[in-house]
Amino acid sequence: MRKSRRTLVLFLALSSAHLLLMSVQVQARSGMPLIQAAAFGVLAGVQRATAGFADGVRSFWSDHVASQGVVAENDVLRQQVIALEGQTQAQAALVGQVHDLERLLNLQESVIPPTLAARVIGGDAAPGALTITIDRGAADGVEPNMAVIGHAGVVGRVINRPTAHAAQVQLLIGHNAGVGAITEQSGAVGPVRGGAGDPPLGMDYVDVLKEVVVGERVLTSGLDGIFPRGYLIGTVVRAIKGSGDYSEIAVHPAVDFSNIQMVLVILARPAGTDGGS
């Protein structure tokens, strides 16, 4: 009897502590950075170790056990590298032309921001959170709100303060995620937000007078101060003109979020932070 009463008292005490913790955050309208930083700091090292172990096992498997067909794959990849080198040279020539034009027209020269490759070492701690952990942090120059891209397009942004060698990235498809966007052909501007269902991205506040067409590419507009202009977000899969002032635009993301192994952190400081962009 006494034991069950003690259990009940402990339950009530723990529940009250949780409620108190929640009410403090609701009143302050902010999270608890210290607790978050401590928890992330503790687990980032463990995640790095488990990711290293998992990658080691996988590379052993792929290097020594499942290496059939590697020669044929190698040939295909060589051909792709040659094709990509050609494309890179063409792009470099175009960039040179753009710089020349900018100089001629006395425009401010556009700068290609430096990037940093990072490995994904962890996923969501809780279901539905849609964050990943990468193995680059403050020691590598990563700061909160820096944009993160993949080989196909925009992945998300760095959230919270990174530890020395790890950072947390909020995925673009997450509920509170968003990015300033512009459609490539029609030039419609508006924020793209995550958590929209199926497809997971939706573009808001698009003027009903803009003729947005299905299949049109959606790029970053650079207006949010986080993502530089011109990176691919996705493709329009549904464009419905509503009765109001805005169209309903659904966007299919360019990145396959179920298979992200490597990402690039854009090391340009977001607007509004020390140093500016």
Binding site: L21, G31, D124, N160
Partner: peptide, 21 residues
Amino acid sequence: GLMQDALTGSVIGVGGLAKTV
């Protein structure tokens, strides 16, 4: 629950309370 809340940037205490219950 608290660790999960802290790591996901959610309101700390929600997951903790649910898992305590």
